[in-house]
Nucleic acid binder design. Structure first.
Lengths: 106, 106
DNA sequence: ATACTATATAAGAGAATGATTATATAAGGA
DNA sequence: TCCTTATATAATCATTCTCTTATATAGTAT
């Protein structure tokens, strides 16, 4: 891996709120509205964190009607594989709200 | 691992100059003066980067006369083990200058 | 079409970061 | 002792980060 990619992914992961986002996504797709509840920050703040993770190639998204579901990409870099292993999954942040469940049914 | 420790170590590693410092230390001890040459930044800047890595528990130091040798700690966290595996070692930054060689002989 | 909901983007404030220069400290040698 | 060298700390500044509020966009429903 290039050092610049290493830096980009480390920078993307090096934030407590983004670590929590990743922790939630370890169990599967989560939609933005759920993240807002879990983190206790504003919706735009969540959106910006998600963008940073996406730009680093760590997560991807799927649009479901008005909602947007985010999940970890399948083919993580070796670096991110190692990091994600150390982040404990957080349950209860996905598939719990109406929007997520509807998404799963499609 | 606690999320706050994960964050601290990720933040410490998430900088291109500090990645280079770690890359140098993969081959063993390096003294501050050598880092200055490798990174091309001022000596105080190097000192501050090293302090950040030290405070995150990633590196440790050994005083040798006027010089100070820095090296990776032996018992890295699982997180740092994974990260360090992805950083390519850089040779030629240690044991090359006078101060380092003298240090090694002690 | 209008209204409502979910998400993204823009703009701006305040904190944190990373560099520099100047200075302090500590060890070694004349 | 005094001077030099190696490193750390302090002060400062420019940049980047992360939040907020306000607004834009897109989809759904009435």
């Amino acid at each position: 891996m290039e050092n610049t990619l290493i830096e980009k992914q480390l920078k993307a992961a090096a934030d407590l709120n983004r670590i929590k986002l990743l922790a939630c996504m370890k169990n599967g797709e989560v939609c933005v509205c759920d993240f807002v509840d879990v983190l206790g920050i504003s919706q735009p703040a969540v959106s910006q964190h998600l963008r940073k993770l996406k730009e680093a190639g760590i997560i991807t998204e799927r649009k479901v009607g008005t909602w947007k579901h985010y999940r970890l990409v399948e083919d993580q870099t070796p670096l991110m594989k190692g990091i994600l292993e150390q982040i404990k999954p957080v349950t209860g942040c996905n598939c719990s709200s109406v929007c997520t469940n509807i998404g799963e049914e499609n």
